[in-house]
Design a protein around this nucleic acid. Structure first.
Length: 655
DNA sequence: TCACGGAATATTTTT
DNA sequence: TATTCCGTGA
């Protein structure tokens, strides 16, 4: 192995004017050479900028891009940072290893699959697959009749995932959040064991397993750990406040040779506790990593003073936080508004009116965002926007890849990549008339016994009820088998087979058909089916226009609708937070748990700190909540008692 | 063994 | 509200 350059030994003259481009704290972080460093970066304090410049500087110092690892929350975030670094310096920055913890885990586990007991590789279970596997076991084990009520498959998947990610026993998760299921506890545990066993048999790995197995790989195989950790000379982790214990362990193990880690985050913006993230994680960083240097970035470059005044008040209500005081030099700007409107629909109409007004005043649509607690909160607004002909792009909420028609199509493709994928076979076989679980099982067994890949289906002897359907299916697979096809060609073959199923199964098939066309467009960008499927599982597109899948790139000048979670790290000229209603935001489900309530507060803080110039909170006067039977009529408790010199309250009744 | 329909039930956020 | 679940009849 060639002698590596270390940052502190670099004699390079730097061409980028770091001193001019960065403030003192940012510069200190960017120039940090060896060891552990924690950058506590307040909202809008130039966190991304700091990481970008650091990447550029490392590369400029002559460090090979491949030995730099940049872990971010989404692949898009890392691509964006590397792109910007490349603009500062040159294309070498694009070759830095970047991605999410899950994608890193996937890559490494593929390479070392036999070491963790997967001799023939493995397939990834997404959330829906996880649920259907749990559902099958739930039925097989006959748990349902045993109890008056037993958790449904989605609840079970939740319980299991939370327990793993928070590193707690299933029992504590159940007794804290699902006390009514305590009587079933033993069987909930049994089912979990069965789930683990079944995953091993079928060579599946779920999202959580990716992290767990990576940790096991690094812990139990010192030789591999040394090899991997010497390959990554400089590690940077973004959004560290949203990592969990397993991820912290992984970082620790990955850095065991070179001991260079820069973690960047803001405890006040920790909003993924439901996924096992613990904002305390960021504070224990210095305990785990010895001699950690702590750098604080407290100057806010994003928001005008009146907005910062409000966000400082909001976060001051947090029970536990690490004090920091954000300041800005951005003068002027108007006071944030808390707007009460009549009904839900007048909330939407208020927004439409305001958005048009802003637009006429010169603010382009893409500089305006509407944020909300949950995906469905924007439904009424979407209709109203449609009526006005305002196009928008929506982030988060509805999971496009999890809609039935997408899952169906992916199932055929997954079989092509992995012919013994039991869940996928089940899925496509059940689409055929007269075939239920039992028949599907026997067909699957035939395919397995044939040991001839997916063409094993040709050996199936159909019963009279389903000859026709089976013939069509056989025809699909033998066509694909007859000659080599590109990813897109396979997609086309599957679509032409599936379109009749689509028409049969869904009333709204024209819309769904358009979605499939779009999927085909995405497929054309791929040279490998495996890569396509991995990306769909690990980084599924999460944007839509209206209810259709949209391109991954923001379209020109469209309004942004987004869940607060998906808005993390972004910023806009004007931000509207809708449903700022007690019971919606904070959500009713968080009201009786202090930790959950704190998380809601941080979530509201994240939403508010996205705004540069204008910030509106809007809520309808009175809403009947079907779910709880309650009437919500007060503004969010986090905003209600804020003095009007900080947050102005108005009533609006448009039209 | 499958399909259908009525009854129950849970309702956020994401890799 | 919409899905999921479960029992029943074919």
């Amino acid at each position: 192995m060639q002698q590596r350059i270390r940052l502190k030994d670099s004699k390079q003259d730097f061409s980028i004017p770091y001193e001019e481009a960065l403030n003192a704290g940012q510069l200190e972080a960017v120039k940090f050479d060896e060891g552990y460093v924690l950058v506590i970066a307040g909202a809008g304090s130039g966190k991304t900028r700091t990481l970008t410049y650091r990447v550029a500087r490392l590369v400029e110092a002559g460090i090979s891009p491949g030995v730099i690892l940049l872990l971010t929350f989404t692949r898009k975030a890392s691509q964006e940072m590397l792109r910007r670094a490349a603009l500062l310096l040159d294309d070498r920055c694009e070759r830095v290893s970047g991605g999410t913890f899950h994608s890193l885990a996937y890559t490494l586990l593929r390479r070392y699959a036999p070491k963790i007991g997967f001799d023939n590789g493995f397939a990834i279970l997404d959330r829906a697959d996880t649920e259907s596997l749990i559902g099958m076991l739930r039925k097989e084990m006959g748990l349902v009749s045993k109890y008056r009520s037993f958790p449904r498959k989605s609840t079970l998947a939740n319980i299991y995932s939370k327990a793993v990610n928070k590193t707690i026993a299933i029992e504590s998760e159940v007794s804290n959040y699902y006390p009514h299921f305590i009587p079933c506890l033993e069987d909930i545990n049994n089912l979990y064991d069965a789930y683990g066993q079944r995953k091993r048999e079928l060579q599946y790995v779920d999202y959580d397993d990716l992290l767990i197995y990576l940790r096991i790989l690094l812990q139990e195989h010192p030789d591999i750990r040394d090899r991997i950790s010497s390959a990554y000379q400089y590690i940077m982790v973004d959004e560290y406040q949203d990592t969990n214990k397993i991820q912290a362990d992984i970082i620790y193990l990955l850095s065991s040779i070179n001991k260079n880690v820069m973690a960047v985050g803001d405890d006040s913006q920790s909003i993924y506790a439901f996924r096992g993230a613990n904002f305390k994680n960021i504070m224990t960083f210095p305990e785990i990593f010895p001699d950690t240097k702590i750098i604080r970035l407290e100057e806010n470059y994003r928001s005008v003073q009146p907005i910062l005044n409000l966000t400082n008040v909001i976060i001051s209500k947090a029970r536990e936080k690490y004090s920091k005081h954000l300041f800005t030099r951005r003068k002027g700007g108007s006071k944030p508004l808390l707007v009460e409107t009549g009904s839900e629909n007048s909330q939407s109409r208020f927004l439409v009116e305001k958005i048009l007004e802003l637009n006429q005043g010169g603010v382009s649509f893409q500089q305006i965002a509407v944020l909300f607690r949950a995906g469905f909160h924007s439904f009424d607004l979407e209709i109203e926007l449609g009526r006005e002909g305002i196009t928008f792009i929506k982030y988060g909420g509805f999971k496009f890849m999890e809609s039935a028609h997408m899952k169906d199509v992916l199932a055929y493709l997954r079989i092509l990549a992995n012919p013994y994928d039991r869940i996928s076979w089940y899925r496509i076989l059940l689409l055929l008339d007269k075939i239920g679980p039992k028949t599907a099982e026997s067909i699957y067994k035939t395919v397995l016994n044939e040991n001839a890949g997916y063409t094993g289906i040709l050996a199936v002897k159909p019963r009279s009820g389903w000859v026709k359907g089976m013939d069509r299916l056989k025809n699909l697979f033998s066509t694909i088998d007859s000659h080599p096809m590109s990813v897109a060609e396979m997609g086309e073959a599957v679509f032409s087979y599936y379109s009749s199923v689509l028409k049969e199964k869904f009333d709204d098939h024209p819309k769904r058909s358009r979605d499939l066309e779009h999927l085909l467009t995405i497929m054309r960008r791929y040279g490998s089916l495996g890569q396509f499927l991995t990306d769909m599982a690990l980084e599924p597109p999460n944007t839509s226009t209206g209810s259709n899948l949209s391109a991954d790139y923001p379209q020109n000048n469209q309004l942004i609708l987004s869940t607060v979670h998906s808005a993390k790290g972004l910023e806009w000229h004007t931000v509207f937070v809708i449903w700022a209603l007690d019971g919606r935001f904070p959500s009713v489900r968080a009201l009786d748990n202090e930790d959950d309530l704190e998380e809601e507060l941080r979530l509201l803080y994240v939403a508010a700190t996205r705004a540069k110039e204008n910030l509106f909170f809007v809520y309808p006067r009175e809403i009947y909540d079907r779910g709880t039977g309650m009437i919500f009529s007060r503004p969010s408790r986090f905003l209600e008692d804020i003095p009007s010199d900080i947050l102005e309250k108005i009533y609006a009744n448009p039209w």
